[in-house]
């Protein structure tokens, strides 16, 4: 028997919204530790790893390990039927072929249950070793989303260059090029963004970091890597899960983009870099 009850159902809804466009079908691993998932996109270029620890649930019971194969689009359809302030309970029998989602409103006067058929999914699981990354950047998740969105209107890839004082995002395309530099900041510091295009030369925006857009950089070695923006933009669908995003980079390794889920765990995205031929 697997049973997991989350008081803040919106968290589960947001998690699904953040991964459903990247991954079609995925196996959720239910263990005593928690509710976890590892899945690659269809091109095997990016990977999502989700962990919702058992201790973060209001109620959690897992008598024995269960793998639940789900179509994420269908799961998302079901979870969309829950209100944001509903409590969500997931239930499955050990040998069953359905998962039940139960939604309960705060007044406990409306209770819904939805059954979804489980699937047998043959997936490849990758072993991701613990790695000491050369550069770790922590910044506002909204800011990261904004940068990825803005740059994708100009180019298809972004080169991320981390030094001890700044992280620079660069792209180029048919219409020109763009550089956005976020300086390592502390409270009240100014953030500088430089956007350069062939048409209008160089514009410099200085904006107060009034929204807590501090950039923390932990650097062992300066790193420069290039990534496809369309995947990063997809990862940014997790923005509402956490105020900050953590980027981890090392030469010749996939970037790790992590959003912490308060008191519960994380959703991590891995993206293989683009390499020179």
């Amino acid at each position: 028997m697997f049973e997991a009850r989350i008081l803040q159902g919106s968290i589960l809804k947001k998690v699904l919204e953040s991964i459903k466009d990247l991954v079609t079908d995925a196996n959720f691993e239910c263990t005593a530790n928690g509710f976890a998932l590892q899945a690659m996109d269809s091109s095997h270029v990016s990977l999502v790893a989700l962990m919702l620890r058992s201790t973060g649930f209001d109620h959690y019971r897992c008598d024995r390990d269960v793998t639940m194969g789900m179509n994420l689009l269908n799961m998302s359809k079901m979870l969309k039927c829950a209100d944001n302030d509903d409590t969500i309970t997931m239930k499955a029998d050990d040998a069953g072929d359905v998962v039940t989602f139960m939604f309960e409103n705060p007044k406990a006067d409306k209770i819904s249950d939805f059954q979804m058929k489980l699937m047998d999914i043959d997936t490849e699981h990758l072993g991701i070793p613990d790695t000491e990354y050369e550069a770790t950047v922590k910044m506002s998740s909204n800011e990261f989303q904004r940068i990825c969105r803005d740059l994708s209107s100009i180019g298809d890839t972004v080169t991320i260059a981390v030094t001890k004082d700044s992280v620079k995002f660069t792209t180029s395309g048919d219409i020109g090029e763009a550089n956005i530099t976020c300086r390592r900041t502390s409270d009240g510091d100014m953030k500088e963004e430089k956007v350069k295009t062939e048409e209008d030369g160089e514009k410099v925006h200085n904006t107060k970091s009034s929204e807590g857009q501090n950039v923390d950089i932990d650097l062992q070695e300066p790193v420069t890597l290039t990534f496809a923006l369309r995947y990063l933009n997809s990862f940014c669908k997790a923005t509402s899960l956490c105020e900050n995003v953590r980027l981890q980079l090392s030469k010749e390794l996939p970037v790790v983009v992590q959003y912490l889920i308060e008191d519960m765990g994380y959703v991590r995205f891995y993206l293989a870099p683009k390499i020179e031929e």
Partner: peptide, 14 residues
């Protein structure tokens, strides 16, 4: 080749 490599270049199954 657009320079995009797969995750299998970095991580082994397991």
């Amino acid at each position: 080749f657009d320079g995009q490599v797969g995750l299998a270049n970095f991580y082994a199954p397991g």
